[in-house]
Computed example of a mutant assay.
Amino acid sequence: MAAIKMSSNNIFITGYAKLPTGITAQELYTVVAIGLLINRENGTIVDLDCTLVTSTAKRFVRENLVGRKITNYDEIECIFNERYYGCAKKALLFALKICNEKFNEVKAN
């Protein structure tokens, strides 16, 4: 993976949500965590990482979020509802919603 150029205009925001019992990720992590590097000015997701177990799941999340605006949570939710059928979907969406709320707080202050 290519290195992301850090900019003073980028901020780092995290979100966490409890995973459902009985899935591999829950056995390893208990919660799903997502960390987003976001452009402070326009809300664009520049990079991210998450605690999903498989590299395919992590790549799916990255490819569907990088370049999108965290402020367009409804669009993000729609994409995941249409395309992501993993057991962690509800937790992942909740963690992203928390990131959206945190970003809105940063922008308000």
Rank of each mutant, 00 (worst) to 15 (best):
T14Y: 03
Y84I: 05
F12A: 13
A88Y: 00
I98D: 09
K107P: 07
I70P: 01
A33T: 15
I34M: 02
N104G: 08
K18V: 14
E82K: 15
L96F: 00
V46S: 03
I11Q: 01
Y84M: 08
N72F: 03
C99A: 11
V66S: 13
G67A: 13
I98V: 15
E41F: 06
R59Q: 15
N72W: 06
C87G: 14
D74Y: 07
R83T: 07
M1H: 04
F103W: 05
I98R: 13
T51C: 05
R40P: 12
G86R: 10
R62E: 06
M6I: 15
I70R: 04
V46R: 05
K58R: 12
E82I: 12
G43T: 03
L93W: 00
E75P: 05
N72G: 07
T24I: 12
T51Y: 02
T71S: 10
E27H: 13
I34F: 02
I70K: 06
E41R: 15
C50E: 01
L93K: 03
K58W: 01
S8K: 05
V61R: 01
Y73Q: 05
N100C: 15
L48F: 00
T71Y: 00
Y84Q: 09
C50M: 03
I11F: 02
L37A: 10
Y29R: 15
N109F: 02
S55G: 14
